[in-house]
Amino acid sequence: MLGSIAARLNAVLGRTRALPAPPAARPFPPGGCVAFVLPVGSSARVNQTDAYVTEIASMRLRAVIPARQLAQRVPVWFVSLDDFLRDPSLAEFGSVGAIVISKLPAPAILQRQEALSALLARAASQTGGVPLYADMPDDLAALGKAVHQPFLARYQKGLGASCTLVVPCQALGERLARDARRGIAVVEDPYENPARAVRTQASSPLRLMWFGNLGQINAAMLEEALANAVGALRDRPLQLELVTRSGAREELDAIGRRLRAAHPDCALHVTAWSLQATEQALERCDFVLIPHETRAEWSTGKSHNRLVTAIRAGRLAIASPIPTYLELADYAWIGDDLAAGLRWALAHPQEAAERVRAGQHAVEQRFAPDQIGRKWAALLGID
């Protein structure tokens, strides 16, 4: 199995392809501002100290945190979609040096097809005007294919025709290259949780944790992976805490039934997602399970975020081998068989701790908010 993972890692690193380069950044206009077009009710200037709380991870990681970092350099605005549609030049906001069309959740895209078709038309008319960027944390075309919603692919292709695409990882950039007529830039997700002390000793009962979005598209995979992992440890009592949105009751009930069948002495706890609840659950757990779909087209370009979060929290993550996780394989346990990963972690607590400590240093160098802010600034021509 280790040989298989090493082969995958070598394949990921060895097959990296050059992405289509963005146009050279223009000199940023003196006194100019950056506008992030977002699903907000009204436009507002970004204040570095204001709290912007949303359960949409992509908005926090791809707009709120970068905007705060950029606001240390230039004025930054969160601009409503309606304001952008009314005046794509955003003249009322002064001298605009760059416009970033932020990601909308797929359900929101499908609900606003008419407005977003108008956005694509406005963006296409901006040729030669203010530089346009579209933040793309997901392969919408692949997701649209999986859920039979072709507008997602049309929306992605339309953005790629008029905007430089910004993605959180190389793997996603390679997938979107077909649509990127104005180039692609990689800017990773920043971390958002504080660094905690490393702990890799198992408790009794063993305390495991999973956190993330749960829905129809990943429920069957998650149910299977968690059942296999806990079922392999029937000889010891354990607790599994799931931190996710409160609306996934049907999926959670199915997971609970499967886990009870796989491990009668597994206590399942469900915690409604919040940043604070996630941090507290990470502190309670011994190890973090991050199973992931590895074969579906929509999943292979997912970001490093959840693995980085676990490392920052001082916990060993046992995760599936998607490309971004393989990049960080020295700092976690990465493989197809999560049960094997758990057995390894239980048998090698010292080595597990060394991996996480090294990971915390590596994460600080690559994913710290100020590092990500510098990447955004360089991309937009500010630095």
Rank of each mutant, 00 (worst) to 15 (best):
V100L: 15
H263R: 06
L143A: 03
G215Q: 11
C163H: 04
E192F: 00
L316N: 04
L307T: 06
E351S: 10
A345G: 07
L342G: 09
K157W: 14
P23F: 07
A185T: 05
R182S: 11
F367M: 09
W298A: 02
S246A: 11
Q149C: 10
A142F: 01
A106L: 03
S95T: 11
I311K: 03
L282Y: 03
R62H: 01
G373K: 01
L206G: 06
G41Q: 12
T294R: 11
E250S: 13
L13K: 06
I99T: 12
V147G: 04
S203V: 10
A345I: 04
D337K: 05
S117R: 09
Q156Y: 10
H348M: 06
K145I: 10
A171T: 12
Y331Q: 05
V356F: 05
Y133C: 02
A281Q: 00
P237K: 04
N213E: 14
M209V: 12
R260W: 00
E327D: 15
A98R: 00
S80P: 10
V167Y: 00
H292R: 13
A313E: 00
R260F: 10
A24E: 13
E188R: 06
A161Q: 11
L268Y: 06
A281V: 03
A329T: 14
R15W: 11
R260H: 09
A227I: 05
A281E: 00
K103G: 12
F36Y: 14
P30R: 12
V76P: 01
T200L: 07
A51E: 15
L152F: 13
L226M: 02
G173R: 02
G341M: 01
A51Y: 12
Q48R: 15
E351G: 11
A332N: 05
A229S: 11
A358T: 02
Q371G: 05
A71S: 14
G314Y: 09
E251N: 09
A202R: 07
R73I: 09
I109D: 13
C169S: 10
G32I: 06
P66R: 02
P194S: 15
S102E: 04
P30C: 09
L140R: 06
G335T: 04
N305W: 12
P39R: 11
G335W: 00
V12L: 04
A227L: 07
W333C: 09
W210R: 08
D83S: 08
L176E: 03
D265Y: 03
A377N: 04
A134V: 02
D330S: 11
I372P: 02
